[in-house]
Amino acid sequence: MLLFAEQQGLLEVIKYTVPTIVTGMIAYYFFRLHTKNEDGRRRFLLKKDLQVNALPQRLQAYERMTLFLERIVPSKLLIRVKPNGEDKLAYEALLVNNIETEFEHNLAQQIYMTNECWGVINSAKNATIRLIRTTNMSAKVENADKLREAILSEMLDKQAPSATALSFIKEEISDIW
């Protein structure tokens, strides 16, 4: 009879312990799920606030780089930057220096752009500089005015290197919206 009483007591303990353990496990699971959801919600709200604040800066960076790309279009660059004399090497250096100075002025904009976009802009700048330098190496180019003519005639047949970068920027901006 004593054995039967011990089994009854053990059965009573199990009868109260098992539901308590199951209830505790369910409460722990839901508490953990709730905490995870709250963390996700807080992160989402924080990210949303950051995007609201950063979006105008990102758009301004794209605007500034668009302006840079427009300014280095060879036909516009040649109109804006006139030669100081007849020396074609000095004029080449002046054009390249103008492009590099303007690019360096906008270097900070890269933090608001994707790496791919910044790479395309950098490639357009380098291609424009390469166009100026290779045109200057031509035997037909004798002075600064001939260099201007040669670059302009070179651009009649093809698109400016910055046009590709401008298209890329427009595509990236459309993805933001």
Rank of each mutant, 00 (worst) to 15 (best):
F4D: 15
F4H: 11
A5K: 07
Q7G: 09
Q7K: 09
Q8A: 10
L10P: 07
L10I: 15
L11F: 12
L11W: 10
T17V: 10
T20I: 06
V22M: 02
M25K: 00
A27T: 12
F30Y: 08
F30H: 03
F31D: 01
F31N: 08
R32K: 15
R32M: 12
H34M: 02
T35I: 06
T35S: 08
N37I: 10
E38T: 10
E38S: 09
E38M: 08
R42D: 06
R43A: 12
L46G: 06
L50G: 09
L50N: 14
Q51C: 06
Q51V: 07
Q51W: 12
N53W: 02
N53M: 13
N53D: 13
N53T: 15
A54H: 11
A54D: 14
L55A: 13
L55V: 12
R58A: 06
M65I: 14
T66P: 04
F68A: 09
F68D: 13
L69T: 03
I72K: 02
I72C: 01
P74E: 01
P74L: 01
K76T: 13
L77R: 00
L77M: 04
V81A: 03
V81T: 10
N84E: 09
E86P: 02
E86T: 13
L89C: 00
Y91A: 02
A93F: 02
V96C: 07
N97D: 06
N98Y: 07
I99D: 02
T101S: 06
E102G: 13
N106E: 11
Q109G: 05
Q109Y: 07
Q110I: 01
Q110D: 00
Q110Y: 00
I111N: 11
T114F: 00
T114S: 15
E116R: 08
C117P: 04
C117N: 13
G119Q: 13
G119P: 12
V120S: 03
N122P: 01
A124D: 00
N126W: 01
A127R: 14
I129N: 06
L131H: 05
T134H: 14
T135I: 04
T135R: 05
M137D: 11
S138E: 15
K140I: 15
V141D: 05
D145N: 15
K146N: 07
L147H: 01
L147M: 04
E149Q: 13
I151R: 00
I151T: 03
L152M: 04
E154A: 10
E154K: 14
M155Y: 07
K158G: 09
Q159G: 06
A160E: 08
P161Y: 02
S162P: 07
A163I: 10
A165H: 03
K170I: 09
E172K: 01
I173H: 03
D175V: 10
W177H: 12
